[in-house]
Design a binder for these strands. Structure first.
Length: 270
DNA sequence: CGCTGACCCTGACGGC
DNA sequence: TGCCGTCAGGGTCAGC
């Protein structure tokens, strides 16, 4: 479910309900996620106020007085604000009960997500070594071109590498490469600077558009409609194998790169 | 260091 | 109807 735009949309939706609220209880129904949920989560969080909700890559960071609760949604995770008395569904693994009578409810069928505690002043290995945010000025074509020197890995794998840039998932890797006119299987080290500059622009453009759409269509997701809004947006290649290219009408090709489906136009992408 | 493939887990879907 | 294989938006890790 969550690519960067949905994580950012989730952050924006959650923050008004969390900011300044105290955690008054924690319920862990299933603690076996990608990594085990800290077994003393209740003791770590209770009585503290959430000061703000931030995002880094696809991680949500709930800032509390004594530290940070780090949450990743994996492939199928979601976080909603619900009334504490709302019925508990299958795969509703964790509740953070707030002093508003509401709860932050973590739902994750595949359990590829994770929850971590970072004490104030401590570092966390999962956050160390992350590349720049794609929407920041630290990310640009020059940086990619520089890092790609000598690399023979496909450019699609390269832009999905969190050391290069964070937050580019499979959907938007495919879409950005189409918009930039670059084949996903081209060796990263064999793409010129000007094309990397165009790719950086397209990555920023496609993510920005998706966040804008998510912000619109996910307006009420906090109440229970968790439909990812960005599915409504026009996708050029992702999920369109065999369908006509929206630029040249020829059928789109598919291949697998790094065990992930990749769709592209052999004519428009070189 | 760079790259590939296995793996964590549940659910949806298509073919038989 | 049921069973089986395949695939799914993510990320880490072992091994070569």
């Amino acid at each position: 479910m969550p690519e960067l735009p949905e994580v950012e949309t989730t952050r924006r939706g959650l923050e008004p309900h969390c900011r300044g609220r105290h955690v008054v209880g924690v319920v862990v129904r299933q603690g076996r996620l990608r990594w085990p949920v800290p077994d003393d989560l209740d003791a770590l969080l209770c009585g503290q106020a959430i000061t703000c909700v931030e995002r880094r890559a696809k991680y949500l960071l709930f800032r509390l007085q004594a530290g940070t609760l780090l949450v990743h949604l994996g492939m199928s995770g979601s976080l909603r604000v619900v009334e504490q008395v709302a019925p508990v569904l299958t795969h509703d693994h964790i509740d953070l009960q707030l002093d508003s009578g509401q709860a932050l409810r973590y739902h994750d069928p595949r359990r590829f997500g994770s929850v971590h505690w970072i004490a104030t002043g401590a570092a966390h290995p999962l956050l160390r070594g992350l590349g720049p945010e794609p929407l920041s000025t630290a990310f640009d074509g020059q940086r990619m071109h520089q890092l790609a020197r000598g690399r023979r890995t496909p450019i699609k794998n390269f832009i999905m590498d969190a050391k290069v840039v964070v937050g580019i998932g499979n959907i938007y890797a495919n879409e950005a490469l189409f918009l930039a006119g670059i084949r996903p299987d081209r060796a990263a080290g064999r793409v010129a600077l000007a094309r990397y500059q165009r790719l950086a622009e397209k990555i920023k453009q496609v993510l920005t558009n998706a966040i804008d759409q998510g912000g619109t269509t996910l307006r009420d997701f906090v109440g229970g409609d968790g439909k990812p809004g960005y599915f409504a947006q026009q996708l050029y290649v992702y999920g369109r194998e065999g369908a006509p290219c929206k630029h040249c009408q020829r059928p789109l090709h598919a291949c697998r790169l790094g065990q992930r489906s990749s769709v592209y136009c052999v004519t428009c992408q070189r």
